[in-house]
Design a protein around this nucleic acid. Sequence first.
DNA 1: GCGTTTCACTGAAACGGATCAGTGAATCGC
DNA 2: GCGATTCACTGATCCGTTTCAGTGAAACGC
Lengths: 331, 331
Amino acid sequence: MAPRKRATIREVAQATGLSPAAVSYALRGMQVSEETMLRVRQAAAELGYEADPIARALASGRTGMIGLLCGSLEDLWQQSLAVGIGRSLREKDRYALILDAAGDPARERTLALQLRDQRVDGLIVQPVDPAARFWADLTDSLPVVAIGDALRNGQTAAEVVFDNRSGVTMALEFLREKGHRRVAVLTPTRPSTPDRPADVHVIAEAERLGLDIEVQTARQGLADSAGVASEILSRADRPSAMFCFSDSIAYGVYKAAAELGLSVPGDVAVMGYDDHPMSELLGLTTVNWDLDGIVRAAVRLVVAASDGKTRRRRIVQAPDLRERVSVQPLG
Amino acid sequence: MAPRKRATIREVAQATGLSPAAVSYALRGMQVSEETMLRVRQAAAELGYEADPIARALASGRTGMIGLLCGSLEDLWQQSLAVGIGRSLREKDRYALILDAAGDPARERTLALQLRDQRVDGLIVQPVDPAARFWADLTDSLPVVAIGDALRNGQTAAEVVFDNRSGVTMALEFLREKGHRRVAVLTPTRPSTPDRPADVHVIAEAERLGLDIEVQTARQGLADSAGVASEILSRADRPSAMFCFSDSIAYGVYKAAAELGLSVPGDVAVMGYDDHPMSELLGLTTVNWDLDGIVRAAVRLVVAASDGKTRRRRIVQAPDLRERVSVQPLG
DNA sequence: GCGTTTCACTGAAACGGATCAGTGAATCGC
DNA sequence: GCGATTCACTGATCCGTTTCAGTGAAACGC
């Protein structure tokens, strides 16, 4: 481990007989003659010079890093989203600093503020608690793009929101249509943010459709949701259908059903939300969002905003029902 | 977006009547009196002072960031690994900079060098091409922990290697035992690194066991592996079993089988590798690695190495066969 | 031909901490 | 009671860039 000394801009300056400032300009293609630019580039190449990102960040105030604060990376769909965003940012020469709030609003706050202190050029966030007050502080000091829910405080640079009202309506109407009346709803929402628009809408729609629903919360990921589902499914008067607010939670229901010797959809219908690639294999009927479109939009918007091109936008994603075998007509 | 000016160390110095140097020491709990330390901390809190990570990095040469270079994040198991490592690093107050080589050795090289230029304090890498020469450059300039395969060039700080020989033997012997003779092997290995130890071992073991094998490569992820599998499965004389070098690839086989109207394990046996949580649901027989143990070990080792505690270690992970329904006795 | 622009470049001051070589006072040994 | 240590702290320098305010020379307008 010999931290092989790197060449600095001064050495390049010395080699070319120019000032460090000139080299700095030349390497970024600003206000120098064609000839010096070539000369500088060549000298830099010979010396193996690469600008130090840290020093550059300190001087210019820009790090080239975009923070990505995920709601809960236990959720497979959010993992796909993170992977996609990471890859897409790389293509635009930005690094993604990916953090996981793990469904915890307090943690979300801590991480968001740390990200700001890390001087990221922009932030993409899939908020756990869109109503939290600290968002205003963040949007004040850096461009924020929200995915999923819009933030209720602060001025985001852009939003890629999901039309969860349509998604929920679509799912519940589908269950209703298939004859299901008693439905258990599993949501990843934490008790501290009971007013998430989607959850409110579930209750309203259930009422409108005459559904008898029961809402339970579960962490993302198989293990926890399987536990919650297991409790519900082992009751004598178990509901005929389960509506899960993410495919990962639905997978937990499959697991619980298997352990209890129940079949899907024979003994219980399961409806997911998100459409993770694995859902096709499992035959999970679910609500699909255009993952690629979301990734592209979020990245485009955050990069534009971090470059100061502040075309404030709100992109609404429409859902799409993927009908598969996990929900069958009742009776 | 008003970049609200942050307090600097000089302002804290002014407020306490001390020199910036004293404040710097005090905040890090070095060589100052108990009393000044308290006074400084209080002043810092009042001013809302937080040390700027960028400036600190420039001066100290340490960024607090650990690079994580994944082999291919299309693989769900590697996604789990990345999520786990990211979370575990956060607990130790380090940030993970997660990059995806996408199975491409050239890309791996580029990203690895960029990570070094980004001045990460350490690097965890799951190498695509463990024999590449550039690794030596990297291990020379920063502590590297390899996961999976050991690097053949350079001096890594530590290694968490998988005993792939045992894993492969275990899988192939299991298939043999169940009466399978003709086996298709799907590996994510690229043609440019044909000498990966695991692949070599597959061939040797197949020979020893008298298996008739055919090795095909596929990208990680459902889509591509499904294509490759589809070709194999639609042949009249298709093999009786498929051994996939990752569960994600196995999922692609399930997909292909479903599309061709073939049943698993009725028409074709499928064997996975890794044991992703979803495999339990699908009943995929697979080779399990202790994900949590790997995560903990890798993080512990890279953090220790980046702190200069250079206890060079090699941890070997033993596999574990998870027998489920996807492989049944032939005939 | 003289003032004004433009051009290509320079010098110095940031950026915000960490660190090193002191420095004066208090403490210690004996 | 005097030199040697330790202690708590300071001033200056450094880390490697970017950027601002020039500067001298050439080009330009008329």
